Simulated assay, not measured.
Amino acid sequence: MLNLFYAAHTCALASHIALEEAGADYTLTRISFAGADQRKPDYLKINPKGRVPALVTDRGVLTETPAMLAYIAQSYPQAKLAPLQDPFAFAQAQAFNSYLCSSLHVAHAHRMRGYRWVEADDTHAIEAMKKKVPQSVYDGFALVEQHMLAGPWVLGESYTICDAYLFTLAQWLEADGVDPARLPRVAEHRRRVADRPAVMRAIAAELAA
């Protein structure tokens, strides 16, 4: 059985949603950032990076959201969460998810984790990074808005792992100082994904834990 290690209000929600959409048999293990669980020896044995999510499989542990989403889609092909039969379309899905991971999520992280990029005692640099977040996050989502949404869903007419991931990051727009009204297509996509039963179940499970 799969076991997803997650923390509430993090990118782990994307993989959680994908597991629900796939109808996977899995368990959840919550990591408390407040309790610094991610730095404790037991968790570091699972994920030495000290971050979430981590997905324990019968072949080992997977980390990094794009990899985990691809694994879920490929493990449950009947759920049709990715265009697995079309190498180019699948590469497009991977490119989109890689952009979210390497660009949009990083822009968001500058708001509360500037110490990853500069010395923790360099308060001026950290504050400058925070000040830039509303613009850098907006710019990243504007690129999605204008060039990356192929249809009602990210890749066009079919819902995929890309939609779960975009939805997860779009949940943070307001906290990052971005008005969703400036991104009407992204905002509508967020509303549409939020109405999916699998998404409702994943969010409810994380809030109830």
Rank of each mutant, 00 (worst) to 15 (best):
D86Y: 02
L13E: 07
V199C: 07
A36K: 14
W117F: 05
L169H: 08
K45E: 14
V137A: 00
R185K: 10
C11V: 11
P134Y: 00
V133K: 06
T65P: 04
A18I: 04
A73H: 04
L149A: 06
D163Y: 01
A194T: 09
C11F: 07
L169D: 02
A198W: 03
P41D: 11
A89M: 09
P87N: 12
V144Y: 00
M112P: 11
E64W: 05
T168G: 04
A170W: 01
E119W: 05
F96Y: 05
A18R: 05
K131W: 08
D176C: 08
W117Y: 03
A8R: 13
M129Q: 03
V144N: 02
R192M: 06
E119M: 11
C101T: 15
A209G: 13
M68E: 09
G50M: 09
E127P: 05
Q85N: 15
F96E: 00
H147G: 10
E188W: 09
R201G: 03
T160M: 07
R51S: 13
H124F: 14
L169S: 01
E174I: 13
A22L: 05
A79E: 04
T160G: 01
F33R: 11
A54D: 05
D122R: 02
D121P: 00
S32L: 07
V199F: 02
K80Q: 15
E64C: 09
F90Y: 14
A120M: 12
A150F: 04
P184E: 04
G60M: 10
S136N: 08
A120Q: 12
I161D: 00
Y99W: 04
P180N: 08
Q74T: 11
E119V: 07
R185D: 05
I72Q: 05
L13N: 01
E145N: 00
I31T: 08
A202Y: 00
L69H: 03
Q78E: 13
G114W: 00
K132E: 15
D176G: 06
E157F: 01
